[in-house]
């Protein structure tokens, strides 16, 4: 029996936030190792957002972003997205490669750059889920990453539609990763599906 959002009280939200903290901490560490740089992260936020108030957490829906999309399946299911501005994505790629990447193609991102970003998304999501899995003893499998460079509203419509069957709202667990003075700033979104909350809370023995 899935929990409805009305049943997710503050203490459940705190638990989900803490779980986000553990996951994101592990992800930030792996990014830091990958780049050999210090990566800062924000305290994760857990927010229940109505579809028509999406703007309140992501900014204007036509904001242009690079997004890496992954799905996880297994004991719990959901979507993970790593969202970056164009500049942040470019800076991340050059930091990763150790040189400036000049794309001569007409596309904003070359195939090579897209692969690099997908791999970053893959590693971050893997680290995040690895920590969640260790903590909850739940197992899950990660899909192959996909990439889009488009309006954030369009990109987020994909996980939102999955929720549409059951609810008018979705729960976002959100963490910002930062490097330098915001030269790279990424938004890491975890959107578990509705059935997963009670499974997580039960696995942690709080329900």
């Amino acid at each position: 029996m899935p929990l409805s959002f009305e049943q997710i009280n503050d203490s459940y939200m705190d638990i989900l936030k803490e779980l986000g903290n553990i996951g994101a901490g592990n992800a930030a560490t792996s990014l830091s190792v990958m780049l050999n740089r210090r990566i800062d992260m924000s305290v994760p936020k857990a927010t229940i957002v109505g579809f028509n108030e999406l703007e309140s957490i992501i900014g204007s829906e036509d904001l242009l972003v690079a997004a890496i999309y992954l799905e996880f399946t297994g004991d719990i299911q959901g979507t993970i997205m790593f969202v970056l501005s164009q500049d942040s994505a470019k800076n991340l790629i050059s930091l990763l490669m150790g040189f400036e990447v000049n794309s001569e193609e007409s596309d904003v991102f070359s195939e090579f750059e897209i692969s690099a970003l997908q791999e970053v998304g893959n590693i971050l999501a893997g680290a995040y889920l690895g920590a969640v899995s260790m903590f909850t003893k739940l197992t899950m499998k990660l899909s192959i990453p996909s990439f889009a460079f488009d309006m954030i509203g369009a990109v987020l419509s994909v996980p939102m539609i999955e929720f549409g069957h059951l609810s008018d709202r979705a729960l976002f667990i959100e963490t910002d990763f930062m490097y330098g003075s915001n030269s790279i700033k990424g938004d890491f979104l975890v959107i578990p599906d509705l059935e997963s909350y009670s499974i997580i809370l039960k696995a942690l023995g709080v329900m």
Binding site: S60, E61, D62, D150, M151, I152, G153, A154, V155, L156, S157, V158, M160, I161
Partner: peptide, 8 residues
Amino acid sequence: TTLGLGSC
């Protein structure tokens, strides 16, 4: 107006 229509 509606912004950022994706799969919707």
